[in-house]
Simulated scan of single mutants.
Amino acid sequence: MRALPAEHAIVSAGYALRDVQRWRDGRIETDQDCIAEELPIALLYNDRPHVVMMATPRDLDDFVLGFSLSEAVIDHADELSDVQIHALLEGIEVRVRIPGAHAEVLEGRRRNLTGGTSCGLCGAQALEDAVRQPAPVDAGVEIDPRALHRALDHLQDLQPLNTATGATHAAAWAHADGSIALLREDVGRHNALDKLIGAMTRAGERVSAGFAVITSRASYEMVQKAATVGIPVLAAISAPTALAIQLAESTGVTLIGFARNNSHVIYTQPHAATGSRREHAA
């Protein structure tokens, strides 16, 4: 791959401006549109290629940390070091160092994935790679339904990239009272969650003290990532899949879907999101 000149720093708003022809009220007019950026991001651990993800080229430090944690490449943030991000003509290359023991485990998985924005595990070579079973999560705080919808009400206002382009997902971390502490955006829903996990880790957020909200469906990979880092409650504005529900049940994650328009559906662990935990304990 060919490196770009040094003056091409990786500073991205996440979108590009493009001239377009817009049809409106029977007339054609020239206009400018904000288009979400999507580039291949190659991730190398200890100089060994591991995965290429199509992602929005912003918050890449959060992305590599969150991906490394949610995919169980490392156990703790301080095991990731010497992060080097290089802009190339073909995309972006991210090189990181991890402990040798983790690198050996990673090599043993024999995974060299090419993930798209709708699939995070394309190319897994074994069933155990595709459906990894995380350990059960610790119990979190009870989430009042009003707190969940308080977070949902503020979600759109905190998505500048989606406001500009209409093409990105978001993952947000909210405290128990529904106040949103962190939010990350990306063209890929998996990437947005990984970026959020990285940002939460850097900020020292306690996973037991809040809940995550995603602007997408809740596929099993999203539950898998949440459970791997210990997030106890995951709320999606769209539907879950059957495997996501099964995985949430087995790991103790409270999974919520169709969270919008002042309503939602609780699929697993309902006591954590209905205020009934105390009743169960009584």
Results as ranks from 00 to 15, higher is better:
Y45D: 00
I98R: 05
Q84S: 10
P40T: 03
R97K: 14
V51F: 12
E93I: 00
V51N: 09
D47W: 07
H50I: 05
L80P: 02
V96I: 15
A87T: 06
I98Q: 05
D82P: 07
S81H: 12
E93G: 07
P49H: 02
L44R: 02
A55C: 08
V96T: 13
V51K: 09
D78H: 15
I92Y: 02
S81G: 10
I41E: 02
E79M: 13
V73S: 12
V83K: 02
L65S: 00
E90K: 01
G66C: 06
G66W: 04
L65M: 07
L65N: 00
I92K: 00
F67E: 06
R48N: 12
D75H: 14
Y45Q: 04
D75N: 14
L43E: 05
L89V: 12
S70N: 13
G66H: 01
E93W: 10
R58K: 14
R48S: 12
M54T: 11
I92L: 06
L88F: 11
S68N: 09
G66K: 05
P49S: 03
E79F: 11
I74S: 10
I98F: 05
M53I: 07
V73F: 14
L65H: 01
R58V: 08
I41L: 14
L88Y: 11
D61E: 15
D47T: 04
F63I: 08
E93A: 10
A55S: 08
I41T: 02
V52M: 12
R95G: 01
G66P: 05
D62M: 03
R95E: 07
